[in-house]
C-alpha cells in the first residue's frame, strides 16, 4: 500500500492512477484460488502481486497464467517458478539460491559436517533437499536429516538425535513460529555450534529465543529490524522510517518489504511497457536490469523470471542482526568459537 501511495503521489503509472484491490488468502491454497477467480472475473485486474506463500501461488498460478494476468510472485520456494508460466515472475529470492550462499558460508566457517532439521511442508522439504545437495557438492558431510510436523512444540527427541551425530553445524528448514523453540531446545541440549536457517530468523522469533539465537546464520534479502537504528542500509532505513510513520510500528514481518519491492518491479515493468497490455508488461519486466530495491539489485534479463540472484548473509550475535562478513572480520567468529 505504501509503494502504491508513493507511485500515485508521483502521478501514477503512464498517467493513470493505480487502484489497489487487496485480499487475504489466510494462507489457504483453496482461498487463494477463489480470490484469483474473483480478481480475474469480477475485479478484472491488470496485474497481481503475491500471494506470500508459495503453496498458494502454486494453487492459483495456472488460473492467473491462463488469464494472461502479469503476476509478481513473492514466495520463496523454487516450486512455482518450475512450472514455466509465461505471465508469472518472482521478485523475492528463490530459496535454492540461498542454499548455494549458505553452503559457501559453511565452507568459509570451517563446517565439515552438517545435520539437517526440516518441517514436513513442501517448502521446508524442498529447502532441506537443496541444502543437502549443495552441502555435499562443496564436500560437507550430511550426518542426518530429521523432520517435524507443523504445529509440534516439542523437538527434544529430534534435538537429541541431531546432536548425537556430532555435526559441526545444524541447518533448520523451518517457519517463524517454531524458530525460537528449535533454537532454545538445541542450545538446552548442549549444542554450541553454528546453526543455519532456511530463511530470515524473524525479529519476533529472536525476541522469544533470546540468547539461544546467537550463532544462527541466514542469507536473506530483508531483515525485520527491532529498531530503526539497527539498520545500516540507507534505502532500507528510509523505507522502515516511512513505514513506521504510516503504521506506527516497524514491520514485524519482512513480507512488507517483499510487497514493496514487488510493486516497484511491477511499476517499472509497466513504465517500460507504456501500457497495461499483458504481453507488453511481461516484456517490460523482463527488460528490467539494475533496478535498486530493498532486497538488492533486480535483473530479469536472464529470462528465467527470477529478479534477485544474491543477498547478504547475516548472523545473530548478542541478540542482534550483524552482516556475516563484518562479524567474521571484527573477530566475532573467533570469539564465538572460543566461547563454545
Amino acid at each position: 500500500m505504501l509503494a502504491v501511495e508513493e507511485l500515485n503521489a508521483e502521478g501514477g503509472l503512464n498517467g493513470q492512477t493505480i487502484k489497489l484491490v487487496t485480499y487475504d488468502d489466510q494462507g489457504s491454497p483453496e482461498e487463494a484460488v477463489k480470490i484469483a477467480n474473483k480478481m480475474v472475473e469480477v475485479d478484472k485486474v491488470d496485474a497481481v502481486i503475491g500471494p506470500l506463500l508459495s503453496t498458494c501461488q502454486m494453487a492459483q498460478g495456472a488460473l492467473l497464467n491462463d488469464a494472461k494476468i502479469p503476476t509478481i510472485g513473492i514466495g520463496l520456494s523454487p516450486s512455482f517458478m518450475e512450472n514455466g508460466w509465461d505471465y508469472i515472475v518472482r521478485s523475492s529470492l528463490n530459496s535454492d539460491y540461498v542454499m548455494k550462499i549458505l553452503a559457501q558460508n559453511m565452507v568459509d566457517l570451517d563446517v565439515h559436517s552438517l545435520a539437517i532439521f526440516s518441517g514436513q511442508d513442501d517448502s521446508s522439504k524442498k529447502a532441506a533437499g537443496s541444502m543437502k545437495a549443495e552441502a555435499e557438492a562443496v564436500g560437507i558431510t550430511v550426518t542426518t536429516t530429521e523432520t517435524y510436523v507443523d504445529g509440534d512444540t516439542d523437538f527434544s527427541g529430534q534435538a537429541a538425535k541431531l546432536i548425537n551425530t556430532k555435526p559441526d553445524a545444524i541447518y533448520a528448514a523451518s517457519y517463524a513460529n517454531v524458530q525460537p523453540i528449535i533454537a532454545k531446545q538445541l542450545r538446552q541440549f548442549g549444542f554450541e555450534g553454528l546453526c543455519f536457517n532456511k530463511e530470515l530468523f524473524q525479529a519476533d522469533s529472536l525476541r522469544v529465543a533470546g540468547s539461544a539465537a546467537n550463532g544462527w546464520i541466514f542469507a536473506y534479502p530483508y531483515i525485520s529490524y527491532k529498531t530503526v537504528d539497527e539498520c545500516d542500509i540507507p534505502n532500507m532505513k528510509e523505507f522502515i522510517v516511512k513505514y513506521e510513520a504510516k503504521y506506527g510500528a516497524l514491520p514485524y514481518h519482512e513480507g512488507a518489504m517483499r510487497g514493496y519491492d514487488a510493486v516497484k518491479v511491477l511499476a517499472e515493468g509497466i513504465k517500460n511497457a507504456g501500457s497495461t497490455d499483458p504481453e507488453a508488461i511481461m516484456a517490460g519486466i523482463k527488460s528490467i536490469s539494475g533496478l535498486e530495491g530493498l532486497g538488492g539489485t533486480f535483473d530479469y534479463t536472464g529470462g528465467d523470471g527470477e529478479g534477485l540472484h544474491s543477498c547478504n548473509s547475516y548472523v545473530i550475535a548478542d541478540e542482534k542482526y550483524t552482516v556475516l562478513d563484518k562479524w567474521v572480520g571484527d573477530g566475532g567468529f573467533e570469539a564465538f568459537k572460543a566461547g563454545k
Binding site: Q120, E146, T147, Y148, F155, S156, G157, Q158, A160, K161, N164
Partner: peptide, 8 residues
C-alpha cells in the same frame, strides 16, 4: 521415537 527410531 524421535531420538531412537526416526522423527518421521
Amino acid at each position: 521415537t524421535s531420538a531412537y527410531i526416526s522423527s518421521a
